[in-house]
Amino acid sequence: MMEQLLATKAEARSLSFYYGDFQALKGISMPVHERQVTALIGPSGCGKSTFLRCFNRMHDLYPGNRYDGQIILQPDNTDLLARSIDPIDVRMRIGMVFQKPNPFPKTVFENVAYGLRVRGERSRRAVEEKVEQALHDAALWDEVKERLHQPAYNLSGGQQQRLCIARALATDPELLLFDEPTSALDPIATASIEELMHDLKKRVTILIVTHNMQQAARVSDFTAYMYLGELVEFGVTDELFIKPQKKQTEDYITGRFG
C-alpha cells in the first residue's frame, strides 16, 4: 500500500549482468523509491554488490563486463545503462560509499572538496561552504572542524567512513549507494552510521547492500532478497521480515540458510 504512494527514484527493468561469460545477474526488475532506504540482502555471491555497482556504472571500469536491460532514473526517465549515456554523468548524479572506508591520502577538507573540484567548481567560498555543509550533514563537523587540514588517515575508522559519506554528499547526489558500509567498523561506529542514514533519507534516496539482516531491518524501508543473481522477493521491510511471501526468503531470514 505504502508502495503506491511513493515516487520511484530509479527502477531496474529486466537487468542482467555478465562478467565475461559468467552471468551474475538474471533479469532483475525492482523499484527504488524516492527518499526511502532500500536494502539488498542475500548470501555472499548472490550478486547484491554487483547489482548495486550497476547503478553508477562502476563495472565500466573493467574490461569484459556487459549489461543487459535497463535502469531508469527519474525524474528525467533516463536509462543509465544506455550506450549514449556517459558513465561519468551517471556518477555525477549518483554517489557511492564503499565497504572499507577509502578516504584519499589528502586532508579532510580536500577529501570532501574533491567532488566539487572534479565538477570544475572554482570559487573558494562556494567550496568551503559546501564542504562545511557536507560535514554537518555527515554528522562529522564537530569532530573535525579543528583539523580540516590534517590528513584524513588520522581519523578513526568510523570517522573515515562518515568522511566518505560527506565526500559523496558534497556533490548533492540524487541517489546514494552504500556497499556494506559498516562491515569494517565496530558496533559503536556502525550505530552512528545507521543513525546518519536515517537522517539522510529526508533528502536523498538510499540503496544499501548489507550482509547483516538486523541492519537491513533497522535502517531500511524496503528490502530486496537476492539469491544466485536473481531477485527472490522485494517488499516493505517490515512485511518482508515478518511475513515473507517466499519460502526461500523465510529460510534465509530465520537463519535456516546462509
Binding site: 571500469l61 557511492m96 564503499f98 567532488g115 572534479v118 565538477r119 565526500r167
Partner: peptide, 9 residues
C-alpha cells in the same frame, strides 16, 4: 574507485 564514483574522469 573512490575517485571514479565521484564522477571523476
Amino acid at each position: 574507485e573512490g575517485s571514479y564514483a565521484l564522477g571523476a574522469t
